[in-house]
Design a protein around this nucleic acid. Structure first.
Length: 110
DNA sequence: ATCCTGACTTGAC
DNA sequence: GGTCAAGCCAGGA
């Protein structure tokens, strides 16, 4: 645990993201108290596929709603497919109504 | 030990 | 309103 707690927290929060909702790295980072380390959230997500259960990293996008991490999936379109499968409409590598579908752990999870 | 890179964010021009 | 630059932490070479 200890310093690895951060990564674990990221996984926990990511797993709590409801279907059809998306959040940003910064939001998770802020919830963990590491708002200045949004990159670490993305880095932590690097082990999302290795985590158990697997982390729905496709529900985590950047603050713009852009599928920046889609390249880290099997294929560049995998992330979009997963999002659409969750009921999230994706257009031009961007989540439609991102602000409406935005899930803030600090407010929703609290 | 140093340098570079990265799934980000914010601020300034 | 778009583009550039800096800040941030951690890990790999």
């Amino acid at each position: 645990m200890d310093k690895y707690n951060f990564f674990q927290n990221v996984y926990e929060v990511a797993k709590l993201i409801p279907s059809g909702r998306v959040t940003s790295y910064g939001a998770i980072a802020a919830y963990l108290g590491a708002k200045s380390s949004a990159r670490m959230v993305g880095w932590a997500m690097n082990g999302a596929g290795a985590a158990d259960p697997e982390i729905p990293a496709h529900r985590v996008v950047n603050h713009q709603g852009l599928l920046t991490g889609k390249h880290h999936f099997g294929t560049p379109t995998k992330m979009q497919e997963l999002l659409e499968k969750d009921g999230v409409e994706v257009k031009n590598d961007r989540v439609v109504d991102f602000e409406t579908r935005f899930w803030d752990p600090m407010k929703e999870l609290l």
